[in-house]
Amino acid sequence: MLSLGPNCPDVGSIHLVKNCRTHNKKPKYKFQICGRQFVETPTNKVISSETSYLIYRFFLEKISLAGIARSTGVSQKWLQDYVNNKYASIERTVKVKPKKKVRLNVECDELWSFVDCQENKQWVWLAMDRETREIIGVYIGARSEEGAKQLWNYLPFVYRQCAVCYTDFWAAYACVFPSLRHQPVGKESGKTNHIERFNNTLRQRVFPIVITTISFSKKLENHIGAIWYFVHHDNYVLSE
Protein backbone atom coordinates (compact mmCIF):
# COMPACT_ATOMS: atom_id res chain seq x y z
CA MET A 1 0.00 0.00 0.00
CA LEU A 2 1.24 3.46 -0.93
CA SER A 3 0.81 6.33 1.47
CA LEU A 4 2.17 9.17 -0.64
CA GLY A 5 0.17 11.11 -3.15
CA PRO A 6 -2.74 13.52 -3.32
CA ASN A 7 -5.57 13.54 -0.81
CA CYS A 8 -8.88 12.08 -1.95
CA PRO A 9 -11.25 15.03 -2.50
CA ASP A 10 -14.15 12.98 -1.08
CA VAL A 11 -12.82 11.75 2.28
CA GLY A 12 -9.36 13.31 2.57
CA SER A 13 -7.55 9.95 2.64
CA ILE A 14 -4.01 9.58 1.32
CA HIS A 15 -3.98 5.75 1.43
CA LEU A 16 -4.00 4.41 -2.10
CA VAL A 17 -2.98 1.31 -4.05
CA LYS A 18 -2.02 0.60 -7.63
CA ASN A 19 -5.02 -0.54 -9.68
CA CYS A 20 -3.95 -1.93 -13.08
CA ARG A 21 -3.39 0.38 -16.07
CA THR A 22 -5.43 2.43 -18.50
CA HIS A 23 -5.96 1.41 -22.13
CA ASN A 24 -2.85 3.46 -23.06
CA LYS A 25 -0.71 1.73 -20.38
CA LYS A 26 -0.68 4.51 -17.79
CA PRO A 27 -0.76 3.22 -14.18
CA LYS A 28 -4.01 3.75 -12.30
CA TYR A 29 -4.35 4.25 -8.55
CA LYS A 30 -7.28 3.78 -6.20
CA PHE A 31 -7.97 5.28 -2.77
CA GLN A 32 -8.63 2.42 -0.36
CA ILE A 33 -11.39 4.04 1.69
CA CYS A 34 -13.63 5.56 -0.98
CA GLY A 35 -12.60 3.54 -4.03
CA ARG A 36 -11.99 6.64 -6.16
CA GLN A 37 -9.58 5.99 -9.06
CA PHE A 38 -7.22 8.36 -10.83
CA VAL A 39 -4.21 8.65 -13.14
CA GLU A 40 -1.21 10.48 -11.71
CA THR A 41 -0.51 12.63 -14.78
CA PRO A 42 -3.69 12.73 -16.86
CA THR A 43 -3.61 14.24 -20.32
CA ASN A 44 -6.58 15.76 -22.12
CA LYS A 45 -6.46 14.34 -25.63
CA VAL A 46 -7.82 16.64 -28.32
CA ILE A 47 -10.04 14.75 -30.74
CA SER A 48 -9.22 15.87 -34.29
CA SER A 49 -11.88 16.68 -36.87
CA GLU A 50 -10.69 13.69 -38.91
CA THR A 51 -11.25 11.35 -35.94
CA SER A 52 -14.66 12.89 -35.24
CA TYR A 53 -15.71 12.31 -38.85
CA LEU A 54 -14.44 8.72 -38.70
CA ILE A 55 -16.51 8.13 -35.54
CA TYR A 56 -19.53 9.62 -37.33
CA ARG A 57 -19.06 7.12 -40.17
CA PHE A 58 -18.57 4.22 -37.75
CA PHE A 59 -21.92 5.02 -36.13
CA LEU A 60 -23.55 4.18 -39.47
CA GLU A 61 -22.09 0.68 -39.48
CA LYS A 62 -22.62 -2.22 -37.10
CA ILE A 63 -19.48 -1.67 -35.03
CA SER A 64 -19.42 -1.89 -31.25
CA LEU A 65 -18.34 1.08 -29.13
CA ALA A 66 -15.33 -0.94 -27.95
CA GLY A 67 -14.40 -1.55 -31.60
CA ILE A 68 -14.74 2.14 -32.44
CA ALA A 69 -12.59 3.09 -29.43
CA ARG A 70 -9.87 0.64 -30.48
CA SER A 71 -9.96 1.81 -34.10
CA THR A 72 -9.83 5.55 -33.37
CA GLY A 73 -7.71 5.59 -30.21
CA VAL A 74 -10.26 7.44 -28.08
CA SER A 75 -11.15 6.23 -24.61
CA GLN A 76 -14.31 4.19 -24.12
CA LYS A 77 -15.50 6.60 -21.42
CA TRP A 78 -15.11 9.60 -23.74
CA LEU A 79 -16.86 7.70 -26.53
CA GLN A 80 -19.75 6.63 -24.29
CA ASP A 81 -20.27 10.22 -23.12
CA TYR A 82 -20.11 11.38 -26.74
CA VAL A 83 -22.69 8.78 -27.78
CA ASN A 84 -25.03 9.70 -24.92
CA ASN A 85 -24.92 13.39 -25.82
CA LYS A 86 -25.16 12.76 -29.55
CA TYR A 87 -28.19 10.49 -29.39
CA ALA A 88 -29.95 12.69 -26.83
CA SER A 89 -29.72 15.63 -29.25
CA ILE A 90 -31.03 13.78 -32.32
CA GLU A 91 -34.23 15.32 -33.67
CA ARG A 92 -37.23 12.97 -33.45
CA THR A 93 -39.08 14.26 -36.51
CA VAL A 94 -38.58 13.33 -40.15
CA LYS A 95 -37.24 15.71 -42.76
CA VAL A 96 -38.67 15.01 -46.20
CA LYS A 97 -38.94 16.89 -49.46
CA PRO A 98 -42.20 18.81 -50.05
CA LYS A 99 -44.88 16.79 -51.85
CA LYS A 100 -47.76 17.83 -54.07
CA LYS A 101 -51.30 16.90 -53.06
CA VAL A 102 -51.60 13.95 -55.42
CA ARG A 103 -51.96 10.24 -54.70
CA LEU A 104 -48.97 9.07 -52.67
CA ASN A 105 -48.00 5.49 -51.89
CA VAL A 106 -46.64 4.55 -48.48
CA GLU A 107 -45.25 1.23 -47.26
CA CYS A 108 -45.41 0.46 -43.53
CA ASP A 109 -43.87 -2.32 -41.49
CA GLU A 110 -42.56 -3.16 -38.00
CA LEU A 111 -39.45 -4.94 -36.76
CA TRP A 112 -38.48 -5.83 -33.24
CA SER A 113 -35.45 -5.70 -31.05
CA PHE A 114 -34.98 -5.26 -27.32
CA VAL A 115 -33.30 -3.06 -24.73
CA ASP A 116 -31.39 -4.50 -21.77
CA CYS A 117 -33.12 -7.91 -21.92
CA GLN A 118 -35.14 -9.88 -24.45
CA GLU A 119 -38.28 -9.48 -22.37
CA ASN A 120 -38.15 -5.71 -22.94
CA LYS A 121 -39.14 -5.77 -26.61
CA GLN A 122 -39.01 -2.52 -28.55
CA TRP A 123 -40.80 -2.49 -31.90
CA VAL A 124 -39.66 -0.11 -34.63
CA TRP A 125 -42.62 1.14 -36.68
CA LEU A 126 -41.61 2.62 -40.04
CA ALA A 127 -43.33 4.25 -43.01
CA MET A 128 -41.63 4.81 -46.38
CA ASP A 129 -42.60 6.81 -49.44
CA ARG A 130 -42.53 4.17 -52.19
CA GLU A 131 -41.51 6.59 -54.96
CA THR A 132 -38.75 8.56 -53.19
CA ARG A 133 -37.70 5.82 -50.68
CA GLU A 134 -37.70 8.43 -47.90
CA ILE A 135 -38.58 7.31 -44.39
CA ILE A 136 -41.55 9.50 -43.54
CA GLY A 137 -42.60 8.06 -40.18
CA VAL A 138 -40.84 6.46 -37.21
CA TYR A 139 -42.02 5.25 -33.84
CA ILE A 140 -40.27 2.97 -31.33
CA GLY A 141 -42.38 1.28 -28.69
CA ALA A 142 -44.89 -1.53 -28.25
CA ARG A 143 -46.47 -3.50 -31.08
CA SER A 144 -49.94 -2.35 -30.18
CA GLU A 145 -52.73 -0.07 -31.30
CA GLU A 146 -50.88 2.78 -29.58
CA GLY A 147 -47.83 2.06 -31.75
CA ALA A 148 -49.92 2.25 -34.93
CA LYS A 149 -51.49 5.49 -33.70
CA GLN A 150 -48.10 7.06 -33.01
CA LEU A 151 -46.83 6.05 -36.46
CA TRP A 152 -49.90 7.59 -38.12
CA ASN A 153 -49.44 10.80 -36.14
CA TYR A 154 -45.77 10.99 -37.20
CA LEU A 155 -46.67 11.03 -40.90
CA PRO A 156 -46.47 14.48 -42.51
CA PHE A 157 -49.91 15.97 -43.06
CA VAL A 158 -49.83 15.61 -46.86
CA TYR A 159 -49.50 11.83 -46.48
CA ARG A 160 -52.33 11.57 -43.99
CA GLN A 161 -54.43 13.52 -46.47
CA CYS A 162 -53.45 11.94 -49.80
CA ALA A 163 -51.56 8.65 -49.35
CA VAL A 164 -52.58 5.00 -49.48
CA CYS A 165 -50.64 3.06 -46.82
CA TYR A 166 -49.82 -0.55 -47.63
CA THR A 167 -49.32 -2.69 -44.51
CA ASP A 168 -49.40 -6.30 -43.42
CA PHE A 169 -52.53 -7.70 -41.78
CA TRP A 170 -51.61 -6.68 -38.23
CA ALA A 171 -54.95 -5.64 -36.73
CA ALA A 172 -53.65 -2.45 -35.10
CA TYR A 173 -53.30 -0.75 -38.49
CA ALA A 174 -56.99 -1.25 -39.34
CA CYS A 175 -57.98 0.13 -35.95
CA VAL A 176 -56.08 3.39 -36.47
CA PHE A 177 -55.51 4.11 -40.16
CA PRO A 178 -58.59 5.54 -41.97
CA SER A 179 -60.03 2.96 -44.35
CA LEU A 180 -59.55 5.25 -47.36
CA ARG A 181 -55.86 5.57 -46.48
CA HIS A 182 -55.16 1.92 -45.69
CA GLN A 183 -54.67 -1.21 -47.77
CA PRO A 184 -53.54 -4.43 -46.03
CA VAL A 185 -51.58 -6.73 -48.36
CA GLY A 186 -49.62 -9.97 -48.20
CA LYS A 187 -45.90 -10.30 -48.89
CA GLU A 188 -46.65 -11.96 -52.22
CA SER A 189 -48.13 -8.68 -53.49
CA GLY A 190 -44.70 -6.99 -53.47
CA LYS A 191 -46.24 -3.77 -52.20
CA THR A 192 -44.16 -3.72 -49.00
CA ASN A 193 -40.89 -4.95 -50.53
CA HIS A 194 -39.01 -1.67 -50.12
CA ILE A 195 -39.76 -1.14 -46.44
CA GLU A 196 -38.94 -4.79 -45.70
CA ARG A 197 -35.61 -4.33 -47.46
CA PHE A 198 -34.96 -1.22 -45.38
CA ASN A 199 -35.71 -3.21 -42.21
CA ASN A 200 -33.00 -5.65 -43.26
CA THR A 201 -30.60 -2.74 -43.79
CA LEU A 202 -31.32 -1.54 -40.26
CA ARG A 203 -30.47 -4.96 -38.85
CA GLN A 204 -27.24 -5.05 -40.83
CA ARG A 205 -26.01 -1.54 -40.07
CA VAL A 206 -27.55 -0.19 -36.84
CA PHE A 207 -25.73 -1.58 -33.82
CA PRO A 208 -28.65 -1.87 -31.34
CA ILE A 209 -31.07 -3.59 -33.75
CA VAL A 210 -30.48 -7.17 -32.71
CA ILE A 211 -32.43 -10.28 -31.74
CA THR A 212 -30.16 -12.92 -30.20
CA THR A 213 -26.71 -11.34 -29.86
CA ILE A 214 -24.98 -9.85 -26.82
CA SER A 215 -24.52 -6.55 -28.69
CA PHE A 216 -27.71 -4.83 -27.57
CA SER A 217 -28.67 -1.47 -26.12
CA LYS A 218 -28.82 -1.10 -22.37
CA LYS A 219 -30.34 2.37 -22.53
CA LEU A 220 -33.62 3.08 -24.33
CA GLU A 221 -32.64 6.66 -25.14
CA ASN A 222 -29.57 5.46 -27.05
CA HIS A 223 -31.57 2.71 -28.77
CA ILE A 224 -34.04 5.27 -30.11
CA GLY A 225 -31.29 7.78 -30.91
CA ALA A 226 -29.31 5.26 -32.98
CA ILE A 227 -32.35 4.47 -35.12
CA TRP A 228 -33.18 8.14 -35.73
CA TYR A 229 -29.51 8.82 -36.45
CA PHE A 230 -29.52 6.30 -39.29
CA VAL A 231 -32.92 7.42 -40.62
CA HIS A 232 -31.77 11.05 -40.85
CA HIS A 233 -28.58 9.96 -42.62
CA ASP A 234 -30.48 7.80 -45.10
CA ASN A 235 -32.97 10.55 -45.92
CA TYR A 236 -30.12 13.04 -46.33
CA VAL A 237 -28.34 10.76 -48.82
CA LEU A 238 -31.58 10.39 -50.81
CA SER A 239 -32.02 14.17 -50.96
CA GLU A 240 -28.60 14.82 -52.49
Rank of each mutant, 00 (worst) to 15 (best):
Y53T: 14
C20N: 15
K30L: 13
H182F: 02
R133F: 03
S239C: 10
K30E: 12
A88K: 15
T43N: 10
R130N: 12
T41V: 15
L60H: 13
I195E: 04
L180R: 10
V102N: 01
K191F: 01
E146L: 11
G73H: 06
A174L: 06
S75E: 05
N120L: 05
V74R: 00
F58P: 01
Q32T: 13
K149I: 02
N193I: 00
Y154C: 14
L220H: 15
N7F: 11
S215Y: 11
G141M: 08
L65I: 14
Q161C: 10
P178N: 07
Q37R: 09
F207N: 13
V176K: 01
N84Q: 10
R143Y: 02
D10K: 07
N200V: 02
I140D: 01
G67Y: 10
Q118M: 11
K30N: 00
K86Y: 11
A174I: 03
V94L: 08
N120F: 01
K25Y: 11
Y173C: 02
G147Q: 12
E221H: 00
S64M: 11
Y154E: 13
L180V: 05
K95V: 15
L79H: 08
N85H: 14
L79C: 12
W228D: 13
E119F: 04
K187N: 04
A148V: 07
S48N: 10
T22C: 10
F58Q: 10
T41R: 15
H15P: 00
E107A: 03
K28T: 09
K121S: 11
S49T: 12
G12F: 02
D168G: 03
F169S: 03
Y173F: 11
N85V: 07
I90H: 04
E110M: 08
K100M: 10
S89I: 04
R133G: 01
K95S: 13
T132I: 07
N235H: 01
K86L: 14
L104P: 02
Y154G: 04
C117R: 13
D10L: 13
W112M: 13
A148E: 07
S89F: 05
E40C: 13
Q80T: 14
F58I: 09
T51L: 11
T43L: 09
N19P: 00
F207T: 15
H233M: 10
W78H: 08
R130Q: 11
T212N: 15
N120H: 10
I136D: 08
V83W: 01
N24Q: 08
